[in-house]
């Protein structure tokens, strides 16, 4: 349905906004490398089922997400490494990995490798933006492109929420994916303060600065 498609394209747009910013400004300042690595982990553990994905739509998006994320990490770790400031990117990701790992082991749908890794990836994605938001907090401001990147990334999962509501009412056989829904709501909540600042500042064409 439209919400889901818009969400997936918003996700794709966020990746291309980020790529554009890094290549255009030849710098990855203001971007958390830790968050990008977490997203790489999210895609790898989420798309282990890539080889037998039945829908071409999903297959293409999975390949796009994995390949573009690999490229972003290459750019940040090799090409523009000098513009990477590790002592601004100090969020303790082990807490996030522990959080996702614990929930994946406690409440997977089934105790199979695929399901446990999938649950891990869903929970990790819900908190993977934290190092990025934390870095934003520390620098106090961000380039417009970085703000657009975070906004598009936040919108992707936010749009999945109406998608789930729509499916609940329109597909009688649809069973609610409680893990994805819970984590998706948590993820969207984590963006809420950012969205507020983004909406009030950037929509007025002002620079993105924290109050």
């Amino acid at each position: 349905n439209i919400f889901r498609v818009l969400g997936d394209f918003s996700h794709l747009a966020s990746i291309f906004i980020l790529l554009h910013k890094i290549q255009q400004l030849k710098s990855c300042s203001g971007i958390s490398f830790k968050s990008q690595v977490l997203y790489m982990l999210v895609y790898i553990t989420r798309y282990l089922d890539l080889p037998w994905t039945s829908s071409p739509y999903n297959f293409i998006f999975k390949v796009l997400f994995i390949s573009s994320e690999l490229y972003i990490i290459y750019l940040m770790a090799r090409a523009y490494k000098p513009t990477n400031d590790p002592n601004l990117d100090t969020f303790h990701v082990e807490f996030l990995l522990g959080f996702a790992g614990l929930l994946a082991l406690l409440f997977p749908y089934k105790y199979t490798i695929l399901e446990v890794f999938w649950a891990f990836s869903i929970w990790l994605e819900s908190v993977a933006i934290l190092p990025q938001l934390f870095m934003l907090q520390r620098t106090g401001e961000a380039e417009a492109m970085t703000a657009h990147y975070i906004a598009a990334l936040g919108m992707y999962r936010a749009l999945y929420i109406p998608n789930w509501i729509y499916r609940y009412f329109s597909e009688p056989t649809h069973k609610v994916d409680t893990i994805a829904v819970t984590a998706g709501i948590l993820q969207t909540i984590l963006y809420s303060d950012f969205f507020w600042i983004y909406y009030t500042k950037v929509m007025r064409g002002e620079k993105f600065k924290l109050p």
């Binding site: 889901r4 996700h11 089922d49 994905t53 039945s54 999903n58 998608n163 069973k175 994916d177």
Partner: peptide, 10 residues
């Protein structure tokens, strides 16, 4: 019955 297990969302 298609295995519902297959994740149909990204």
């Amino acid at each position: 019955r298609r295995e519902k297990d297959e994740k149909d969302e990204l």
